[in-house]
Structures are given as structure tokens and as C-alpha cells.
Amino acid sequence: MNKAIFHKGSASAITTDLRYKPAIHFSGVDYSIDGTTILKGVTGSFPDGKITTLAGPSGAGKTTLLKLCNGLISPTSGDIYIHGRHIHEYEPVDLRRMVGIALQNAPMVKGSVYRNLSLPLELAGKKLSEDDAASFLEDVGLDESFLHRDSKDLSGGQKQKVSIARTLVNRPRILLLDEITASLDQTSCREIEQLIVKINQRYNVTMVWITHNLDQARTIGHYTWVMIEGEVAETGESSLLESPKTDEVRRFVKGGFA
């Protein structure tokens, strides 16, 4: 029943590192709200087909950056490119299908797992067959017996898997993950980590994952961005967390920030 459910990433000429092509590129992006500056001069790329982890203390602007990636909010200034096209060139609905997002609390709508999986296509006036729904569940490690379970009866780990499967229904090329394991027990956390790695490797989907778990950021991410006070303090391969180049990132890694 399994089938390839992702489109392959396309080429782009916009990059800050010649070793990879960017899925998302930021150029001088600022974001302010109610007179408060949240992001300052963010420039850099999330590499296509790779897992980039976003680390940094609370209030560093990580979630704001994630929301910019699929147009939930717009930058105050600067430019964002998705696979080489300016984000404004995409229709909002098309952009959010291509750039999916999964959240920490894995919100469920009332009703069955099948109802939750069907929602993305229902919003587009389409119908998800039970066979296809079962296939998406299989992709996240759940069998088809879950289809008609009430979503309120699922464990935290099971809800997160269903949330990810629901995001996959739109066949995204990019997945944004906001602290998706923060409230899970160790076993469920490990299962989600393995699931994300499997999806990335099997379908070449780009992942951008916010995490406060530095071990997770280092071991799961191919690349890591460390953000501090709305700025990108350091980026590179995730091994940078073992030997940061800047004093502020060294302090963060050693627990010097709340």
C-alpha cells in the first residue's frame, strides 16, 4: 500500500553555500510587531532535502521565523524565496500545501482519525479515500485500525504521528516542525525522531525543526541554525554545537541562557 507521496525538490540559484541548493532562502529579513523587533537582518538558507534544526533560547525568534516560511505572517522588510521563487509569487493556499507545518500540541479536530486526515482535502473540496488515508498512516508507523478511532483517545505520541500524517496529505516538499517532541515521553520522542529521519531519507523532503533539545538538534539535524535575540548567531553542520565559534553560542550551549 505504501507509495511515494512527495514531489522532488527543484533546483535554485539562490544560496549562501555552494555545497547545497536552498529550499528556503532569507535575505535581510526583519520582523517587528507593536513596536517590538523580533527578527533582525536574517540572511541564510535552509538546504533542500536536508534536516535543519533551529536552536536558541526562548524568545530568540525561532517560531516567528518558521511562520514566515509558509506565509502565516509576512516580514516587515527583506525577502524570502521558496525554491528560488519569491514567496509573494505563490498563492497562499498553494504555499501552505507545499510548506506544511506540525505543532507541539498536535491539535486534533473532533471525530475520528480518518476525519482528521481528510480535513486538508475537504478544505480543497476533495475527498480522501480510506485506502489513501491508511497509506498515510502506514507512512507514520500506524496501522489502518487507527482510522476509525476517536482522536481524543489517542496518546500524545499517536496524536503527533496523526498530525504529521495529516500534514503529508498535501504532499509537501517542506515540513516545518515546531517542538513536536517537547511534551512526549522518551519512547514516543524517539519514535518521532526515527519517523522524521525516515520521511526525510525516503522522500527527500526538506525539514526545518525547532527544538530545545541540543542532543536532538545535533544528532537529527544535518545543519543547525542557532538564533539569539532575533539574530542568526551561527549556522553550519550540526556538529557546530560541539564546538561553537562564537562566545554567545558557547554560552548558550553551556546553559548560559534561559
Rank of each mutant, 00 (worst) to 15 (best):
S12R: 09
P120Y: 03
I82P: 00
E91D: 15
P244C: 11
A217L: 13
P120D: 06
A102Q: 04
A217K: 08
A182T: 07
S12P: 04
I38E: 08
L240V: 06
L214P: 01
P92V: 08
G157K: 08
R173A: 05
R173Y: 00
P57S: 02
H86P: 01
E122M: 15
P172N: 08
M227C: 03
A233G: 03
L54V: 00
G84E: 01
P172I: 02
G71C: 11
L184K: 06
R190E: 10
G35R: 14
V226W: 07
K3L: 09
I174F: 08
S10Q: 12
Q201M: 09
T181H: 12
S112K: 15
K254N: 09
L168G: 02
I73G: 05
K67W: 06
S27C: 09
K110Q: 15
I38A: 10
L72A: 12
E248F: 11
S118Q: 06
A55F: 04
V208S: 04
N70G: 11
H86E: 14
A134M: 04
V249T: 11
A23C: 11
K245T: 02
G230C: 12
L65E: 01
D17S: 15
K67E: 01
N70L: 09
D79Y: 11
A102F: 01
S238Q: 05
I174T: 00
D178N: 06
A258F: 14
R218Y: 08
T36P: 07
N105G: 02
L168W: 10
T64V: 11
H7P: 14
V232I: 15
T53S: 13
R173C: 02
D178K: 08
D94C: 06
S145W: 08
G9V: 12
F46T: 00
G230I: 06
D48S: 14
E242V: 10
F26V: 04
T52Q: 05
R96A: 12
I228K: 14
R97Y: 13
E89P: 04
P92G: 04
E91P: 15
T43M: 15
R251C: 14
N204T: 03
L241S: 03
K21D: 08
K67C: 02
I228C: 11
L65R: 09
Q104F: 04
V162T: 02
K67H: 06
E231Y: 14
T63L: 05
T224I: 02
Q186S: 09
E234V: 00
V99L: 12
Q104K: 09
K50Y: 06
Q104V: 01
Y20Q: 11
S77A: 13
D143T: 03
V253I: 13
Y203K: 05
V109S: 15
P57K: 08
G157F: 07
